[in-house]
Protein backbone atom coordinates (compact mmCIF):
# COMPACT_ATOMS: atom_id res chain seq x y z
CA UNK A 1 0.00 0.00 0.00
CA UNK A 2 1.27 3.45 -0.86
CA UNK A 3 1.74 5.63 2.22
CA UNK A 4 0.16 9.09 1.98
CA UNK A 5 0.63 12.17 4.14
CA UNK A 6 -1.61 15.25 4.17
CA UNK A 7 0.07 18.45 5.37
CA UNK A 8 -2.60 20.91 6.56
CA UNK A 9 -5.51 18.48 6.76
CA UNK A 10 -7.99 20.54 8.81
CA UNK A 11 -9.29 22.76 6.00
CA UNK A 12 -12.12 21.94 3.60
CA UNK A 13 -9.73 20.76 0.86
CA UNK A 14 -7.55 18.80 3.30
CA UNK A 15 -10.68 17.19 4.72
CA UNK A 16 -11.89 16.28 1.24
CA UNK A 17 -8.53 14.74 0.31
CA UNK A 18 -8.72 12.73 3.54
CA UNK A 19 -12.30 11.62 2.81
CA UNK A 20 -11.36 10.38 -0.66
CA UNK A 21 -8.18 8.64 0.48
CA UNK A 22 -9.97 6.80 3.31
CA UNK A 23 -12.02 4.95 0.67
CA UNK A 24 -9.08 4.44 -1.70
CA UNK A 25 -8.09 0.79 -1.93
CA UNK A 26 -4.39 1.29 -2.69
CA UNK A 27 -3.28 3.86 -0.14
CA UNK A 28 -2.90 4.27 3.59
CA UNK A 29 -2.99 7.67 5.30
CA UNK A 30 0.04 7.72 7.59
CA UNK A 31 -0.21 11.31 8.77
CA UNK A 32 -2.81 14.07 8.53
CA UNK A 33 -1.31 17.15 10.14
CA UNK A 34 -2.82 20.21 11.77
CA UNK A 35 -0.93 22.54 14.10
CA UNK A 36 -4.16 23.88 15.52
CA UNK A 37 -5.93 20.52 16.09
CA UNK A 38 -2.96 18.19 16.64
CA UNK A 39 -4.01 15.23 18.81
CA UNK A 40 -7.71 15.63 18.12
CA UNK A 41 -9.82 13.15 16.15
CA UNK A 42 -10.13 14.29 12.53
CA UNK A 43 -13.92 14.02 12.85
CA UNK A 44 -13.78 16.95 15.26
CA UNK A 45 -13.29 19.31 12.31
CA UNK A 46 -14.57 16.90 9.62
CA UNK A 47 -17.74 15.61 11.32
CA UNK A 48 -18.72 13.73 8.16
CA UNK A 49 -15.82 11.36 8.95
CA UNK A 50 -17.26 10.24 12.30
CA UNK A 51 -17.87 6.50 12.15
CA UNK A 52 -15.46 6.30 9.21
CA UNK A 53 -12.14 6.79 10.98
CA UNK A 54 -10.70 7.42 14.42
CA UNK A 55 -7.55 8.93 12.93
CA UNK A 56 -6.19 11.88 14.89
CA UNK A 57 -4.50 14.96 13.51
CA UNK A 58 -0.75 14.64 13.93
CA UNK A 59 1.68 17.40 14.91
CA UNK A 60 4.30 16.18 12.42
CA UNK A 61 6.10 18.92 10.58
CA UNK A 62 6.20 18.52 6.77
CA UNK A 63 9.65 16.89 6.78
CA UNK A 64 8.52 14.36 9.40
CA UNK A 65 5.51 13.54 7.20
CA UNK A 66 7.84 13.16 4.19
CA UNK A 67 9.92 10.67 6.14
CA UNK A 68 6.85 8.48 6.77
CA UNK A 69 5.18 8.79 3.39
CA UNK A 70 5.69 7.92 -0.26
CA UNK A 71 3.59 10.89 -1.36
CA UNK A 72 2.44 14.09 0.36
CA UNK A 73 -0.64 16.22 -0.34
CA UNK A 74 0.26 19.79 0.54
CA UNK A 75 -3.00 21.57 1.46
CA UNK A 76 -1.55 24.77 2.87
CA UNK A 77 -2.38 28.36 1.91
CA UNK A 78 -0.81 30.04 -1.14
CA UNK A 79 2.54 31.58 -0.34
CA UNK A 80 3.28 29.01 2.40
CA UNK A 81 3.63 26.04 0.08
CA UNK A 82 6.48 27.63 -1.87
CA UNK A 83 8.48 27.83 1.39
CA UNK A 84 7.82 24.21 2.41
CA UNK A 85 8.02 22.54 -1.01
CA UNK A 86 11.73 23.16 -1.77
CA UNK A 87 12.70 21.34 1.46
CA UNK A 88 10.23 18.54 0.72
CA UNK A 89 11.68 18.12 -2.78
CA UNK A 90 15.07 17.44 -1.21
CA UNK A 91 13.67 14.42 0.68
CA UNK A 92 12.68 12.79 -2.63
CA UNK A 93 9.05 12.33 -1.53
CA UNK A 94 6.43 12.80 -4.26
CA UNK A 95 4.33 15.92 -3.87
CA UNK A 96 0.81 16.95 -4.86
CA UNK A 97 0.60 20.68 -4.12
CA UNK A 98 -2.99 21.94 -3.81
CA UNK A 99 -1.91 25.60 -3.64
CA UNK A 100 -1.30 27.94 -6.57
CA UNK A 101 2.42 28.22 -5.84
CA UNK A 102 3.63 25.82 -8.56
CA UNK A 103 0.79 25.91 -11.09
CA UNK A 104 2.31 28.54 -13.38
CA UNK A 105 5.33 27.82 -15.59
CA UNK A 106 6.38 31.48 -15.98
CA UNK A 107 7.86 32.99 -12.76
CA UNK A 108 6.94 36.51 -13.94
CA UNK A 109 3.29 35.49 -13.95
CA UNK A 110 3.52 35.22 -10.16
CA UNK A 111 4.64 38.82 -9.94
CA UNK A 112 1.82 39.90 -12.26
CA UNK A 113 -1.08 37.83 -10.86
CA UNK A 114 -0.03 37.06 -7.28
CA UNK A 115 2.14 40.06 -6.55
CA UNK A 116 5.13 38.19 -5.18
CA UNK A 117 8.52 37.08 -6.40
CA UNK A 118 8.55 33.31 -6.51
CA UNK A 119 11.24 32.01 -4.11
CA UNK A 120 11.85 28.79 -6.08
CA UNK A 121 11.38 29.56 -9.79
CA UNK A 122 13.69 26.76 -10.84
CA UNK A 123 11.22 24.23 -9.40
CA UNK A 124 8.34 25.45 -11.54
CA UNK A 125 9.43 23.36 -14.50
CA UNK A 126 9.41 20.19 -12.38
CA UNK A 127 5.70 20.38 -11.50
CA UNK A 128 3.09 18.91 -13.85
CA UNK A 129 -0.25 20.75 -14.01
CA UNK A 130 -2.60 18.26 -12.32
CA UNK A 131 -5.38 18.21 -14.94
CA UNK A 132 -5.48 14.65 -16.34
CA UNK A 133 -7.75 15.64 -19.26
CA UNK A 134 -4.86 17.70 -20.66
CA UNK A 135 -1.70 16.18 -19.09
CA UNK A 136 -2.38 12.45 -18.67
CA UNK A 137 0.89 11.25 -20.21
CA UNK A 138 3.05 13.69 -18.20
CA UNK A 139 1.21 12.72 -15.01
CA UNK A 140 2.04 9.05 -15.45
CA UNK A 141 4.95 8.47 -13.10
CA UNK A 142 5.27 12.19 -12.29
CA UNK A 143 7.02 13.13 -9.05
CA UNK A 144 5.60 16.63 -8.54
CA UNK A 145 2.08 17.79 -9.39
CA UNK A 146 0.47 21.21 -8.97
CA UNK A 147 -3.27 20.67 -8.62
CA UNK A 148 -5.31 23.28 -10.55
CA UNK A 149 -7.54 25.98 -9.08
CA UNK A 150 -11.26 25.17 -8.85
CA UNK A 151 -12.59 27.78 -11.29
CA UNK A 152 -9.68 27.13 -13.65
CA UNK A 153 -10.66 23.45 -13.80
CA UNK A 154 -14.25 24.20 -14.83
CA UNK A 155 -13.17 26.81 -17.39
CA UNK A 156 -10.26 24.85 -18.86
CA UNK A 157 -12.02 21.50 -19.19
CA UNK A 158 -15.03 23.14 -20.87
CA UNK A 159 -12.98 25.40 -23.20
CA UNK A 160 -9.93 23.27 -24.08
CA UNK A 161 -11.50 21.33 -26.99
CA UNK A 162 -12.53 24.59 -28.70
CA UNK A 163 -9.07 26.07 -28.16
CA UNK A 164 -7.41 22.90 -29.48
CA UNK A 165 -9.61 23.00 -32.60
CA UNK A 166 -8.66 26.64 -33.21
CA UNK A 167 -12.20 27.87 -32.54
CA UNK A 168 -11.05 30.34 -29.88
CA UNK A 169 -9.97 33.31 -31.98
CA UNK A 170 -10.43 36.34 -29.80
CA UNK A 171 -10.65 37.05 -26.09
CA UNK A 172 -12.73 34.70 -24.00
CA UNK A 173 -15.07 36.00 -21.31
CA UNK A 174 -15.41 33.63 -18.32
CA UNK A 175 -18.39 34.51 -16.11
CA UNK A 176 -18.06 32.23 -13.08
CA UNK A 177 -20.57 31.42 -10.32
CA UNK A 178 -19.12 29.70 -7.24
CA UNK A 179 -20.35 28.35 -3.92
CA UNK A 180 -19.21 29.38 -0.43
CA UNK A 181 -16.99 26.35 0.23
CA UNK A 182 -14.53 27.85 -2.27
CA UNK A 183 -13.68 30.50 0.31
CA UNK A 184 -12.60 27.92 2.91
CA UNK A 185 -13.45 27.39 6.57
CA UNK A 186 -12.43 30.70 8.13
CA UNK A 187 -15.46 32.75 9.28
CA UNK A 188 -15.68 36.47 8.49
CA UNK A 189 -18.35 39.12 7.93
CA UNK A 190 -18.54 38.05 4.29
CA UNK A 191 -19.36 34.46 5.29
CA UNK A 192 -21.80 35.53 8.04
CA UNK A 193 -25.00 33.65 7.14
CA UNK A 194 -27.35 36.65 7.20
CA UNK A 195 -25.01 38.50 4.82
CA UNK A 196 -24.01 35.51 2.67
CA UNK A 197 -27.37 33.80 2.09
CA UNK A 198 -29.09 34.62 -1.18
CA UNK A 199 -26.39 36.91 -2.55
CA UNK A 200 -25.20 37.23 -6.12
CA UNK A 201 -21.98 38.84 -4.98
CA UNK A 202 -19.41 40.10 -7.45
CA UNK A 203 -16.30 39.29 -5.45
CA UNK A 204 -13.75 39.52 -8.26
CA UNK A 205 -14.99 41.47 -11.31
CA UNK A 206 -11.62 41.53 -13.08
CA UNK A 207 -8.04 40.21 -12.72
CA UNK A 208 -8.99 36.96 -10.99
CA UNK A 209 -5.81 34.96 -10.33
CA UNK A 210 -7.14 31.84 -12.01
CA UNK A 211 -7.02 33.79 -15.29
CA UNK A 212 -3.29 33.01 -15.46
CA UNK A 213 -3.85 29.24 -15.32
CA UNK A 214 -6.72 29.31 -17.80
CA UNK A 215 -4.61 31.23 -20.30
CA UNK A 216 -1.58 28.98 -19.70
CA UNK A 217 -3.54 25.81 -20.40
CA UNK A 218 -5.61 27.14 -23.32
CA UNK A 219 -2.38 28.36 -24.91
CA UNK A 220 -0.86 24.92 -24.27
CA UNK A 221 -3.62 23.09 -26.18
CA UNK A 222 -4.07 25.71 -28.92
CA UNK A 223 -0.48 26.81 -29.49
CA UNK A 224 -1.87 30.34 -29.73
CA UNK A 225 -1.95 33.07 -27.10
CA UNK A 226 -5.51 33.35 -25.79
CA UNK A 227 -6.52 36.21 -23.48
CA UNK A 228 -9.19 35.67 -20.84
CA UNK A 229 -11.42 38.23 -19.11
CA UNK A 230 -12.88 36.65 -16.01
CA UNK A 231 -15.59 37.81 -13.59
CA UNK A 232 -16.35 35.76 -10.45
CA UNK A 233 -19.61 35.83 -8.47
CA UNK A 234 -20.36 34.12 -5.16
CA UNK A 235 -23.87 32.66 -5.37
CA UNK A 236 -26.21 30.94 -2.99
CA UNK A 237 -24.78 27.43 -2.76
CA UNK A 238 -22.10 25.72 -0.65
CA UNK A 239 -20.48 23.35 -3.16
CA UNK A 240 -20.41 23.89 -6.87
CA UNK A 241 -19.11 26.02 -9.72
CA UNK A 242 -20.65 26.94 -13.05
CA UNK A 243 -18.47 28.74 -15.54
CA UNK A 244 -20.30 30.39 -18.43
CA UNK A 245 -17.73 31.23 -21.10
CA UNK A 246 -18.57 33.52 -23.99
CA UNK A 247 -16.43 32.73 -27.05
CA UNK A 248 -16.87 35.30 -29.81
CA UNK A 249 -16.24 33.85 -33.28
CA UNK A 250 -15.49 35.64 -36.53
CA UNK A 251 -18.04 33.59 -38.46
CA UNK A 252 -21.24 31.68 -37.71
CA UNK A 253 -20.32 28.85 -35.31
CA UNK A 254 -20.98 25.34 -36.73
CA UNK A 255 -22.51 22.89 -34.25
CA UNK A 256 -21.05 19.88 -36.03
CA UNK A 257 -17.50 21.29 -35.81
CA UNK A 258 -17.92 22.03 -32.13
CA UNK A 259 -19.14 18.51 -31.39
CA UNK A 260 -16.22 17.14 -33.40
CA UNK A 261 -13.80 19.18 -31.25
CA UNK A 262 -15.37 17.92 -27.98
CA UNK A 263 -15.75 14.32 -29.12
CA UNK A 264 -12.20 14.28 -30.47
CA UNK A 265 -10.66 15.38 -27.19
CA UNK A 266 -12.96 13.79 -24.61
CA UNK A 267 -14.18 10.59 -26.27
CA UNK A 268 -12.85 8.26 -23.59
CA UNK A 269 -12.44 10.65 -20.69
CA UNK A 270 -13.62 8.86 -17.50
CA UNK A 271 -14.76 12.05 -15.72
CA UNK A 272 -16.05 14.32 -18.49
CA UNK A 273 -19.79 14.18 -19.19
CA UNK A 274 -21.62 16.01 -21.98
CA UNK A 275 -24.69 17.52 -20.32
CA UNK A 276 -26.73 18.51 -23.35
CA UNK A 277 -30.42 17.69 -23.79
CA UNK A 278 -33.38 19.09 -25.68
CA UNK A 279 -35.88 18.38 -22.88
CA UNK A 280 -36.02 18.03 -19.13
CA UNK A 281 -34.58 20.12 -16.32
CA UNK A 282 -30.92 19.59 -17.03
CA UNK A 283 -30.39 20.68 -20.62
CA UNK A 284 -27.02 22.21 -19.81
CA UNK A 285 -24.42 21.66 -17.09
CA UNK A 286 -25.57 22.64 -13.58
CA UNK A 287 -23.59 22.09 -10.36
CA UNK A 288 -26.84 20.66 -8.93
CA UNK A 289 -26.16 17.32 -10.69
CA UNK A 290 -22.39 17.26 -10.33
CA UNK A 291 -22.08 17.88 -6.59
CA UNK A 292 -20.57 14.92 -4.73
CA UNK A 293 -18.90 13.51 -7.85
CA UNK A 294 -15.59 13.96 -9.64
CA UNK A 295 -17.38 14.73 -12.91
CA UNK A 296 -16.62 17.78 -15.02
CA UNK A 297 -19.85 18.45 -16.86
CA UNK A 298 -19.49 20.20 -20.21
CA UNK A 299 -22.09 21.72 -22.54
CA UNK A 300 -22.47 24.54 -25.08
CA UNK A 301 -24.91 26.46 -27.20
CA UNK A 302 -24.32 28.42 -30.41
CA UNK A 303 -25.60 31.97 -30.86
CA UNK A 304 -25.67 32.71 -34.59
CA UNK A 305 -27.14 36.13 -33.78
CA UNK A 306 -23.88 37.62 -32.50
CA UNK A 307 -21.52 34.80 -33.59
CA UNK A 308 -20.91 33.48 -30.14
CA UNK A 309 -20.39 30.02 -28.63
CA UNK A 310 -21.59 29.87 -25.01
CA UNK A 311 -19.66 27.16 -23.15
CA UNK A 312 -20.67 25.75 -19.76
CA UNK A 313 -18.57 23.88 -17.21
CA UNK A 314 -20.01 22.55 -13.93
CA UNK A 315 -18.07 20.79 -11.15
CA UNK A 316 -18.02 20.18 -7.42
CA UNK A 317 -15.33 22.72 -6.50
CA UNK A 318 -13.98 20.58 -3.62
CA UNK A 319 -13.82 17.34 -5.62
CA UNK A 320 -13.00 17.78 -9.32
CA UNK A 321 -12.03 21.37 -8.45
CA UNK A 322 -9.47 20.27 -5.83
CA UNK A 323 -9.21 16.91 -4.01
CA UNK A 324 -10.60 14.89 -6.92
CA UNK A 325 -8.04 16.27 -9.39
CA UNK A 326 -5.41 15.56 -6.73
CA UNK A 327 -6.39 11.92 -6.22
CA UNK A 328 -6.91 11.38 -9.97
CA UNK A 329 -3.38 12.73 -10.56
CA UNK A 330 -2.03 10.56 -7.74
CA UNK A 331 -3.62 7.50 -9.36
CA UNK A 332 -1.76 8.32 -12.58
CA UNK A 333 1.46 8.97 -10.65
CA UNK A 334 1.43 5.44 -9.20
CA UNK A 335 -0.18 3.65 -12.13
CA UNK A 336 -3.38 2.87 -10.20
CA UNK A 337 -6.74 2.67 -12.03
CA UNK A 338 -7.44 6.32 -12.72
CA UNK A 339 -10.97 6.00 -11.24
CA UNK A 340 -9.78 4.40 -8.00
CA UNK A 341 -11.31 6.21 -5.01
CA UNK A 342 -13.28 8.50 -7.35
CA UNK A 343 -15.79 6.18 -8.91
CA UNK A 344 -18.98 7.38 -7.22
CA UNK A 345 -22.04 9.09 -8.73
CA UNK A 346 -23.17 12.60 -7.81
CA UNK A 347 -25.95 13.13 -5.29
CA UNK A 348 -29.44 13.86 -6.55
CA UNK A 349 -31.39 15.62 -5.34
CA UNK A 350 -28.99 17.60 -3.13
Amino acid sequence: MVKVGIVGASGYVGGEVLRLLLSHGQVEVVSATSRQYAGEYVFKTHPNLKGVTNLQFSADDPLKVASKADVVFLTVPHGLSCKITPKLVETGVRILDMSADFRLKDPHAYEKWYGFTHPAPDLLGKFVYGLPELHRSELKGAKYVAVPGCMSTAAIVSLAPLAKAGLVEKDVIVDAKIGSSGAGGKPSLSTHFSERFGVVRVYKPVAHRHTAEIEQELNYVSGKSVQVGMTAHAVNMVRGILTTSHVMTSSKPEVAMIWKAYRGMYKDEPFVRFIMDKKGLYKYPDPKIAIGSNFADVGFEVDPYVNRIVVFGAIDNLIKGAAGNGVQSMNLMFGFDEKEGLNFPALHPV
Partner: peptide, 25 residues
Protein backbone atom coordinates in the same frame (compact mmCIF):
# COMPACT_ATOMS: atom_id res chain seq x y z
CA UNK B 1 -25.85 16.23 -34.73
CA UNK B 2 -23.00 15.16 -32.49
CA UNK B 3 -21.84 11.86 -34.03
CA UNK B 4 -22.49 10.16 -30.71
CA UNK B 5 -23.28 6.46 -30.62
CA UNK B 6 -27.00 5.68 -30.36
CA UNK B 7 -28.03 2.22 -29.15
CA UNK B 8 -31.25 1.22 -30.95
CA UNK B 9 -33.01 -1.79 -29.34
CA UNK B 10 -32.95 -4.82 -31.62
CA UNK B 11 -36.74 -5.11 -31.41
CA UNK B 12 -37.25 -1.43 -32.33
CA UNK B 13 -40.40 -0.80 -34.40
CA UNK B 14 -41.33 1.85 -36.95
CA UNK B 15 -42.34 5.14 -35.32
CA UNK B 16 -40.45 4.43 -32.10
CA UNK B 17 -38.52 7.41 -30.67
CA UNK B 18 -34.87 6.98 -29.69
CA UNK B 19 -32.66 9.77 -28.38
CA UNK B 20 -28.93 10.41 -28.47
CA UNK B 21 -27.47 10.02 -24.95
CA UNK B 22 -24.94 12.82 -25.51
CA UNK B 23 -26.91 15.67 -27.04
CA UNK B 24 -30.52 14.66 -26.48
CA UNK B 25 -31.55 14.90 -30.16
Amino acid sequence: VCSGAIEVPNDAIKGEIVSCPDCGT
